[in-house]
Design a protein around this nucleic acid. Structure first.
Length: 257
DNA sequence: GTCTTTGTTGGCAC
DNA sequence: AGTGCCAACAAAGA
């Protein structure tokens, strides 16, 4: 679930509900999600409050009134919940506020992580996070893309190249740009790279506008049709499934060259 | 029971 | 060096 558009929705949840209130306690319900030790998490956050909710790629960054920043990464499944009362299922970490509400880090498959850092830039460098897909300007994208090799889909999913895109949205970007996912990125002309850049922006922006809910995507999107037996929204032909390094991907052989 | 699934990393082959 | 593939991590649903 959590690629750039999903994390952007979580960021907005955090921004509207979880800022500027003192954190009374931090509960870590699964040691595995604490990439920084639970003691470190607790000591860095208790008594402080989140001042901002930022995002870089798939990372949600929450600077505090102290000297540290809480960093969340959701792994393959996860989301945030802000509530009062019972702890939701699969809550792996909970930040309790003095007003009685809590922010829950939900992570059913335990592949998410929480980090504490005092330097966002250094953290991103250490994690090899490239520029955010939505913050990247066209000329910067072109400069990077012209040096990049390998399949378009792999390039889009390479977090050190551009950060934020995963398996689902890379399929959608390839579809909207009209490229077969396995096309080599260095075989694209300058004009085709520009087309890829605009498809990337359009897909991510549109997904955010639709709250990153697959069923709510526009009719011309392939995302709601990532199933065998489905048909292409553009030409009506059969959607095909293939594999790339053990991961399934979907495309229209007629519309994507 | 088997296969697949959204992310990332590390090992191996080329 | 960089690219691709696979396994592993977890757990749930088909």
């Amino acid at each position: 679930m959590p690629e750039l558009p999903d994390v952007e929705i979580f960021r907005r949840t955090a921004e509207t509900h979880a800022l500027n209130q003192a954190i009374e306690a931090v509960e870590i319900d699964d040691q595995k999600v604490a990439a920084s030790s639970p003691q470190n998490l607790s000591e860095s956050l208790r008594g402080y409050w989140f001042t901002e909710a930022k995002r870089r790629g798939k990372y949600l960054l929450m600077p505090t009134s102290g000297e540290t920043v809480l960093v969340m990464h959701f792994g393959m499944t996860g989301w945030l919940e802000y509530n009062q009362g019972d702890k939701p299922g699969y809550a792996k970490a909970t930040f309790n506020y003095t007003n009685g509400y809590s922010l829950h880090f939900i992570n059913p498959r335990k592949l998410g992580r929480l980090y504490i850092t005092d330097d966002i830039e250094a953290f991103c460098q250490y994690m090899k996070a490239g520029p955010d897909a939505l913050a990247l300007k066209e000329d910067a994208f072109m400069e990077r893309a012209q040096k990049k090799k390998g399949m378009i889909k792999s390039a889009l999913m390479d977090q050190s190249f551009i950060s934020g895109i995963g398996n689902i949205y890379s399929d959608e970007i390839c579809f909207q740009a009209g490229f077969h996912p396995k096309t080599k990125i260095n075989d694209l002309s300058e004009i085709q790279l520009v087309r890829l850049f605009h498809a990337m922006n359009d897909v991510l922006q549109t997904a955010i506008e639709h709250h990153a809910i697959p069923e709510k995507m526009p009719a011309h999107f392939i995302i709601p049709r990532r199933k065998e037996g489905e048909y292409c929204p553009r030409c009506g032909g059969a959607i095909k499934k293939d594999k790339r390094s053990g991961r399934g991907f979907y495309f229209c052989p007629h519309c994507q060259e």
